[in-house]
C-alpha cells in the first residue's frame, strides 16, 4: 500500500470547539485506491475528520494537503480541491428545488464548466448504474431516503473526484434501505476508488476496508487491516467497542 501515491494527508491537526478538544495532534494519510474506514464511539471526532479534509471545518493547528498541495482558507484553493474530493453526508441534502438530473448536473456544469450534453450523458449513465434512471425528472422529496442517498453519491461521482468521503451515509436510513446504498459503495470499492468512510455498519466496514482506524476521544487508538481489527483487536477500548455491537443470549432461569 505504501508504494502507492499519497493523495490526502491530514497533518498534526488540532481541532477545538471552544475549550473542548475534538482532535488532538491527529494525522492520517490516504493512498491512492485505498479504502479507509474510520470507526469509533459517537462524539469521538470521526465526522470532524471528514469535514476537515473537505475544508468545511477550520482547525487550530496543523494542515491538510492534497497531492502535496496545501488546503488553506483561501477560496481559490479550497474550491479547487473540493472538486477533487467528493463528500456524501448523512442527511443526503439534495437540492430540493432541482430535479434528480439537475441535482447531479449542477456542479459539473457550473463549477467545472463542462459541456452540458456530455455531463447529461454521464449523469444518466451513473443514475442508471444505481438503478435510478427512471427517477431523473422527479424531485428529491418524491424519493425514499435510500434513493436520495444513492443520488447524492451519483452527484458526488459526477464531479470525477479523486477521493470520496462518506459521512455516516446510512445513519439516517431505515434499516431496509441501508443495503441498497452500501452496495453502491461496495461496487465503487471494487473499481478501486479511493475512499474514506465513517460508518456504524460494522459488517460493511469489515467487508470494504483496506485499513480500519479506530478513533477514541480524538486520537487513533488502534489501526490495522479489517481482518486484524475485527478479528484480533489489540486494545481494550477496541475490544469493548466491538463487543458493544453484540448481545449475550438471554438464558431463562
Amino acid at each position: 500500500m505504501s508504494k502507492k501515491e499519497e493523495i490526502v494527508r491530514v497533518d498534526h491537526i488540532t481541532k477545538r470547539y471552544e475549550e473542548n478538544a475534538i482532535l488532538e495532534d491527529f494525522s492520517l494519510s490516504v493512498y491512492e485506491g485505498e479504502v479507509v474506514v474510520i470507526v469509533g464511539p459517537s462524539g469521538c471526532g470521526k465526522s470532524t475528520i471528514l469535514r476537515i479534509m473537505n475544508g468545511l471545518e477550520p482547525v487550530q493547528k496543523g494542515e491538510v494537503t492534497y497531492r502535496g498541495e496545501k488546503v488553506d482558507g483561501k477560496l481559490g484553493s479550497i474550491t479547487r480541491i473540493r472538486e477533487k474530493v467528493g463528500m456524501v453526508f448523512q442527511s443526503y441534502e439534495l437540492f430540493p428545488h432541482k430535479t434528480i438530473l439537475q441535482n447531479v448536473m449542477l456542479a459539473p456544469v457550473l463549477v467545472q464548466k463542462r459541456d452540458k450534453k456530455e455531463v447529461k450523458e454521464e449523469a444518466l449513465q451513473l443514475l442508471s448504474r444505481v438503478g435510478l434512471s427512471e427517477k431523473k425528472d422527479n424531485y428529491p422529496r418524491q424519493l425514499s431516503g435510500g434513493q436520495k442517498q444513492r443520488v447524492a453519491i451519483v452527484r458526488a461521482l459526477c464531479m470525477h473526484p479523486e477521493v470520496l468521503l462518506f459521512d455516516e451515509v446510512t445513519a439516517a436510513l431505515d434499516p431496509e434501505m441501508v443495503r441498497e446504498v452500501l452496495e453502491v459503495i461496495l461496487s465503487l470499492a471494487k473499481e478501486g476508488k479511493t475512499m474514506v468512510i465513517v460508518t456504524h455498519e460494522m459488517a460493511f466496514a469489515e467487508a470494504i476496508a483496506d485499513r480500519v482506524i479506530f478513533l477514541d476521544a480524538g486520537h487513533i487508538e488502534e489501526e490495522g487491516t479489517a481482518e486484524e481489527f475485527f478479528r484480533h483487536p489489540k486494545s481494550e477500548r477496541a475490544k469493548q467497542f466491538l463487543n458493544s455491537f453484540t448481545y449475550d443470549k438471554v438464558v431463562h432461569e
Binding site: 474550491t79 472538486e83 474530493v85 463528500m87 441534502e93 437540492f95 449542477l106 457550473l110 463549477v111
Partner: peptide
Amino acid sequence: PKHQYESARALGMNSFTVFFF
C-alpha cells in the same frame, strides 16, 4: 438548513454560486 450550504460547498461551488443557484 445549514447542510444545504455545506453540500453545495462540498461540490466545489464558491459562495456566489452557492447563493444564487
